[in-house]
Amino acid sequence: MHALAPTGVTMSRSEARDGDFSSYMHARQPSLMRTAYLLTGDRHTAEDLVQTAFAKLYLSWDKVNDRGSVDGYVRRILVNEHNSLWRRAWKRRETSTDEPPDHPHHDAYDAGTGAELWDLVQTLPKKARAVVVLRYYEDLSEAETADALGISIGTVKSQASRALATLRERAPHTLNPREEDR
């Protein structure tokens, strides 16, 4: 899997390692950045989070023998790093303002109700929000979500159920169809 230099000269081990890591980082970065934004609701915090997650992955790159497991590994770093932002959580609460959340993008589908639902997602407790993002954006199974968050499948179920109940209670009627949620 290690690359060769364009001249055909074999790269040094560290160059090959860095090339290997860079390829992975560039491929995976957009997706992780989106997940981080959904977890944090703030562009700058999301960028910091992804940079930290990649830095920690970089430090462990030689130890990750199974390249197939890297996606799950870096996602776990991302989520754990987000969960350990204890100080920031308190700071956010102390300095909370009436400013609306940062909206990076509204597409044509969004006639306003979408932004409203997104606002509601941002009010969920951190753990419930992480479950929502991994289950309904990343499309992970309950077991995969439990693994990424380091919690039991039962907790994933209860958090997801409670989060949907909260959203259902607060969402506008137009976003509240009487269909059974999975």
């Binding site: 969004d110 997104w118 954006y137 949907l164 059974e180 949620d181």
Partner: peptide, 12 residues
Amino acid sequence: PTGLAGELTRQL
């Protein structure tokens, strides 16, 4: 997903 979960997926 369907219902609110489906809407949530689309909006995320």
